[in-house]
């Protein structure tokens, strides 16, 4: 006599569905050594190049270039690694995994939340690793340790917000390659910001954007926290941007999952 599977008594709760979806995405990441390793190598190489190759030619005001560079670089690391998120989301859709999830009796938003939770964790890993390279390349805290931790916390928040943006890109892209390409748009935010050079050195027509866009205000806040300077003004601007982007893109991503295009 073959044993038969019993029907579950109740559908999965949103919490457990979110955790299961997140666990799978994390396992996929951790078990693909190329993903774990390459992200770190790439971010270390970039940081190394800016610190030691370009850095000598850049004057960043009063502070040393390494003190100027590292906060912005750590804060915006998600703009470089986010392409991987978009690719994973597009792959899931093309390969039928998203269909499987959508055919299961779980809340739609747990699919987005699970994905975002996993990417929040992988991004946290990238932030910590990149910050470690920053210290290795000569960065030092100017402020208190709690301020430094607050700065890292803001980096994590910024990472989470843009995770949802990259999920939307992955859902809009017809396939993984397109998702990778479309993710390049994030470079606009990464480079036309105060990450590498002070926005004030850019031409006048570019300044309104470069000074006020979400990456710049977040970087300014992170930099102020790391240096121990006053961060309040930049912080609330960053908070506003982050809350706005998160709300809008979360709504878009949920709507896209609901439509379930394949």
């Amino acid at each position: 006599m073959i044993q038969t599977v019993t029907r579950p008594i109740a559908p999965a709760t949103a919490m457990s569905a979110t955790l299961v979806v997140a666990r799978r995405a994390l396992l996929k990441f951790v078990r693909t050594p190329a993903l774990v390793g390459m992200g770190i190598v790439q971010s270390a190489l970039f940081l190394f190049s800016f610190r030691y190759v370009f850095g000598g030619a850049i004057h960043a005001g009063a502070s040393t270039y390494v003190a100027y560079l590292v906060p912005g670089y750590v804060a915006t690391i998600v703009l470089f690694t986010g392409g991987g998120i978009a690719v994973a989301v597009a792959d899931d859709r093309v390969e039928g995994f998203t269909d499987r999830l959508l055919s299961l009796p779980i809340p739609r938003y747990s699919i987005v939340m699970g994905r975002a939770l996993a990417d929040f964790a992988t991004n946290a890993w990238a932030i910590v690793a990149t910050a470690a390279f920053g210290f290795l390349f000569g960065f030092r805290l100017g402020g208190s340790i709690p301020d430094g931790l607050a700065a890292l916390g803001l980096c994590l928040v910024f990472g989470l917000v843009f995770t949802v943006v990259f999920i939307v890109i992955g859902l809009l892209a017809p396939n993984a390659q397109a998702a990778q390409g479309m993710s390049m748009i994030a470079f606009v935010l990464a480079f036309m910001s105060s990450t590498y050079v002070p926005a004030g050195t850019m031409p006048g027509w570019l300044q309104p954007f470069a000074q006020n866009q979400p990456a710049t205000v977040t970087i300014n806040a992170v930099r102020a926290l790391f240096e121990g300077g006053p961060a309040f003004h930049d912080l609330w601007q960053a908070a506003l941007w982050c809350a706005g982007i998160f709300a809008v893109f979360l709504a878009i991503s949920m709507n896209l999952y609901r439509k379930a295009t394949a």
Binding site: V20, V21, T32, L101
Partner: peptide
């Protein structure tokens, strides 16, 4: 990247 058993357990959890 998951084993067959892990795949099945994952889906079973999602079924409730």
């Amino acid at each position: 990247t998951m084993t067959g058993r892990e795949n099945l357990e994952m889906t079973a959890r999602l079924f409730g």
